[in-house]
Amino acid sequence: MKQLMLLPALLLLVAGLMAQKNQSLFNGKDLTGWTIHGTEKWYADKGELVCESGPDKQYGYLSTNEKYKNFELTLQFKQEANGNSGVFFRSGIEGVKISGWQVEVAPLNKHTAGIYESYGRGWLIQPKPEDEQLLKEGQWNTLKIKVINDEVTTWLNGHQMVYLKDEKIGQGEGFIALQIHEGGGIKVRWKKIRIKVLG
């Protein structure tokens, strides 16, 4: 009998731990939990997170206040204009000079879901040319990024795009950040930004 009484409590505990590991990074109303870097525009609109070029037409970043090492991140994005953006992981920043690694979000055939190292080695891996066509410009796309120790895997719209094993990435640590590229005329919408911490 005592064992049966303990079962609901254990189930609640397990559910609570799972909820802690799978959480939303954007509340749909404001930028709570995030920090803006630079003068470009970041704002909430109708439950979506918007990044848009500002008058300076420079790089801009929106970083999580928390740092994440091993995780699975899923989000949706829609490119309304140009779309040159990205998702950084294990990153740090001084002003608007960022360190870390970027999973690219860009116009068609510009290597969305590939991995780029800013101010370092440049492109580490790009998707196959035929996989580039999975990007739906002007529509919602689903991007998934899984980072475990020195391994990174990305998916676009349910299709695996790249897999990379890299010692330098394995040593990295820091926050997650969304980017807006320099040059102006860029506007990207984001939603359903969720992270599962993998320990």
Rank of each mutant, 00 (worst) to 15 (best):
residue 39 T to K: 12
residue 34 W to Y: 07
residue 84 N to G: 04
residue 49 L to D: 05
residue 33 G to F: 03
residue 178 L to K: 02
residue 94 E to F: 05
residue 64 T to S: 13
residue 196 K to I: 12
residue 107 P to H: 03
residue 145 I to T: 11
residue 116 Y to H: 07
residue 67 K to Y: 09
residue 89 F to G: 10
residue 171 Q to E: 10
residue 16 G to W: 05
residue 15 A to M: 07
residue 109 N to R: 05
residue 123 W to P: 03
residue 25 L to K: 00
residue 17 L to H: 02
residue 188 V to H: 02
residue 90 R to L: 06
residue 140 W to E: 01
residue 177 A to T: 14
residue 70 N to R: 04
residue 68 Y to P: 02
residue 31 L to P: 13
residue 70 N to D: 15
residue 31 L to A: 09
residue 111 H to R: 07
residue 106 A to I: 02
residue 152 V to F: 00
residue 189 R to Y: 15
residue 143 L to V: 01
residue 97 K to D: 01
residue 156 L to Y: 06
residue 39 T to V: 04
residue 196 K to E: 12
residue 9 A to K: 15
residue 68 Y to H: 13
residue 175 F to E: 08
residue 22 N to F: 08
residue 184 G to K: 02
residue 128 K to D: 03
residue 60 G to E: 00
residue 182 E to Q: 15
residue 25 L to H: 04
residue 40 E to W: 05
residue 52 E to V: 10
residue 60 G to D: 00
residue 115 I to C: 06
residue 53 S to H: 02
residue 138 G to A: 05
residue 47 G to S: 07
residue 39 T to N: 07
residue 89 F to H: 09
residue 134 L to N: 03
residue 12 L to P: 02
residue 141 N to S: 07
residue 161 M to Q: 14
residue 20 Q to R: 15
residue 130 E to P: 00
residue 28 G to H: 14
residue 69 K to L: 10
residue 60 G to L: 06
residue 183 G to C: 09
residue 149 N to R: 03
residue 89 F to C: 09
residue 49 L to G: 05
residue 37 H to Q: 01
residue 134 L to Y: 02
residue 34 W to L: 11
residue 140 W to L: 08
residue 76 Q to A: 05
residue 99 S to A: 13
residue 103 V to E: 05
residue 9 A to G: 02
residue 61 Y to V: 04
residue 41 K to E: 10
residue 182 E to T: 08
residue 163 Y to Q: 15
residue 67 K to F: 00
residue 106 A to E: 08
residue 34 W to S: 04
residue 9 A to N: 09
residue 116 Y to Q: 14
residue 65 N to K: 10
residue 4 L to K: 14
residue 151 E to F: 08
residue 12 L to C: 11
residue 69 K to H: 15
residue 151 E to D: 04
residue 173 E to Y: 07
residue 7 L to F: 12
residue 155 W to S: 07
residue 182 E to I: 08
residue 99 S to F: 05
residue 108 L to V: 12
residue 138 G to Y: 00
residue 104 E to C: 09
residue 95 G to M: 01
residue 13 L to Q: 00
residue 92 G to V: 12
residue 51 C to V: 15
residue 54 G to R: 10
residue 156 L to A: 04
residue 24 S to F: 15
residue 75 L to T: 00
residue 99 S to H: 15
residue 66 E to M: 06
residue 192 K to R: 12
residue 31 L to M: 11
residue 147 V to C: 09
residue 108 L to F: 02
residue 117 E to P: 11
residue 11 L to H: 11
residue 118 S to G: 11
residue 28 G to E: 08
residue 198 L to S: 04
residue 44 A to Y: 04
residue 50 V to T: 13
residue 36 I to R: 10
residue 31 L to F: 06
residue 103 V to Q: 03
residue 65 N to M: 04
residue 194 R to T: 14
residue 11 L to C: 11
residue 35 T to F: 00
residue 159 H to F: 05
residue 149 N to A: 14
residue 163 Y to T: 14
residue 52 E to H: 06
residue 71 F to I: 08
residue 49 L to Y: 02
residue 26 F to P: 09
